[in-house]
């Protein structure tokens, strides 16, 4: 009896290791948990892409649930997610603010002309200093910010339709109640 039980120990270890490794297969090491969720969105006041004289501050959005979408014309994956942002802006009343990250304003304008401009406003972060406050490292990134200016959701990398329908829309509904 004891002898047969002892043979099960390596099997048990194998199963435990296999379980960990199997879980590891579905984890993306690029997805670093953001420490910003549940915290106040870092304050900024940045010029608008259309009007460099007019600053836009995130405080201007207090009282509204809004989406902040970090993009750049040089960023390939941004183009992949762009139709989803366009679609989101069209189908909801939630303001989508574009955050043009380390880009040339002219290139950004051309990019928006060519691919459609879903943004209520586009702010310009030329040197990426504000992006740093938002922990931006893999453009595109998307933040959902609530009425009190708290970050509720963050996605690093291109937004998918599934992110919108499963995470963002339910969160917005919950926050709007």
């Amino acid at each position: 009896m004891m002898a047969s039980a002892r043979f099960l120990i390596p099997l048990g270890i194998f199963i435990a290791v296999a379980a960990f490794l199997f879980k590891g297969l579905s984890l993306d090491p690029k997805e670093v948990p953001s420490p910003l969720i549940g915290k106040a969105a870092p304050e900024f006041s940045l010029p608008l892409l259309n009007d460099f004289e007019a600053p836009f501050a995130n405080g201007d959005m207090t009282g509204e649930v809004w989406l902040l979408n970090v993009f750049a014309s040089w960023c390939g994956p941004c183009l992949d997610e762009h139709p989803i942002i366009v679609n989101f802006a069209r189908s909801t009343a939630v303001p989508v603010v574009g955050f043009n990250y380390k880009d040339r304003p002219r290139a950004a304008k051309q990019w928006l002309n060519r691919h459609g401009d879903p943004y209520t406003q586009v702010v310009v972060d030329l040197n990426g200093r504000i992006g740093l406050d938002y922990g931006v490292y893999g453009v595109p990134e998307t933040f959902l910010i609530d009425q009190q200016g708290i970050i509720r959701y963050k996605k690093i990398g291109p937004l998918t339709q599934m992110d919108v329908s499963q995470d963002i829309i339910p969160l917005i509904e919950e926050l709007s109640q």
Binding site: P33, P35, D133, G135
Partner: peptide, 8 residues
């Protein structure tokens, strides 16, 4: 840095 990017 940790405040923005986490312990990672």
């Amino acid at each position: 840095m940790v405040e923005r990017y986490g312990d990672f």
